[in-house]
């Protein structure tokens, strides 16, 4: 059986909030290393890969592989009943038809308990190869969100160009064009403001801004975001959490015909 206790419900609330507009029905695949999810959006352009490591829970117990088939809209309705600081416990049997969730207020004067019906989801899994990306950019997640939102007001697509002079986000729209260029920032006082660019070769790829703006809903999970880019492969946008857990988004590029 699965028993997983989170010190603060907000971790799961934020994760589900960040992905629920991209994917609807998906399996939480549980084993002794944690809770994983992989799901594509309906158009098969974007993929969500979540890993909540056992280390992010206290305690975490899951002695065999358990698939928890969830509708994220339904899960959101239940999670809305949890306060951010509540202690959240997930419980499920080995072949579950429901997921048990309890929310305990931190001063223990209130315990809420919900059982959520599960679904049988036959999910297609894609193999994601280990990739040495040509460019890896680490930046404040709020900055990335601002760039995507600003450019989306002008255009459907953004071209991300990483070179030795920095990283440039450029768009062309009906009303004109725009670009934002970022250079390396080293803020010793506050490392969260750093912009780091690791480059092995210059890259330039075009992506749909609609999806990137959607990924930015994960902004609350982490103060920094990492973009991994190589020519001719999907972009990886990664939000790292405590305990080695992460939320990753992959986005297929737009390719010239």
């Amino acid at each position: 059986m699965l028993e997983a206790r989170l010190e603060q419900a907000q971790l799961l609330k934020k994760v589900v909030d960040a992905i629920k507009d991209l994917v609807q029905d998906c399996n939480f695949d549980c084993n002794d290393s944690g809770i994983a999810l992989q799901a594509m959006d309906n158009s098969h352009v974007a993929l969500v890969s979540m890993m909540l490591k056992a280390e992010s829970f206290n305690p975490f117990r899951c002695d065999r592989n358990i698939a928890i088939g969830l509708n994220l809209v339904s899960l959101t309705k239940v999670l809305r009943a949890a306060q951010n600081e509540d202690i959240l416990t997930l419980k499920a049997e080995d072949a579950p038809d429901s997921l048990n969730l309890t929310f305990e207020s931190s001063d223990k004067d209130r315990i809420s308990e919900y059982d959520l019906k599960l679904m049988d989801i036959d999910q297609e899994h894609l193999g994601i190869p280990d990739t040495d990306y040509s460019a890896t950019i680490s930046m404040p997640s709020a900055e990335f969100k601002r760039i995507c939102t600003d450019l989306m007001a002008m255009s459907e697509s953004v071209t991300i160009e990483a070179g030795k002079d920095g990283i440039k986000f450029a768009c062309n729209g009906d009303i004109g064009n725009g670009s934002i260029t970022l250079r390396t920032v080293q803020d010793v006082e506050n490392k969260e403001n750093n912009i780091e660019i690791a480059l092995t070769e210059p890259v330039s790829l075009t992506f749909s801004l609609k999806y990137l703006v959607n990924f930015c809903k994960a902004q609350n999970l982490s103060k920094t975001v990492k973009l991994h880019i190589s020519n001719e492969v999907p972009l990886l946008v990664e939000y790292a959490m405590e305990g080695g857990s992460y939320l990753r988004f992959y986005l297929a590029p737009k390719i010239g015909d």
Partner: peptide
């Protein structure tokens, strides 16, 4: 203009 690629063009089903 650019065409939106799908993920299956890069990642194979397992």
């Amino acid at each position: 203009s650019n065409q939106q690629a799908r993920l299956e063009g890069f990642f194979k089903p397992v």
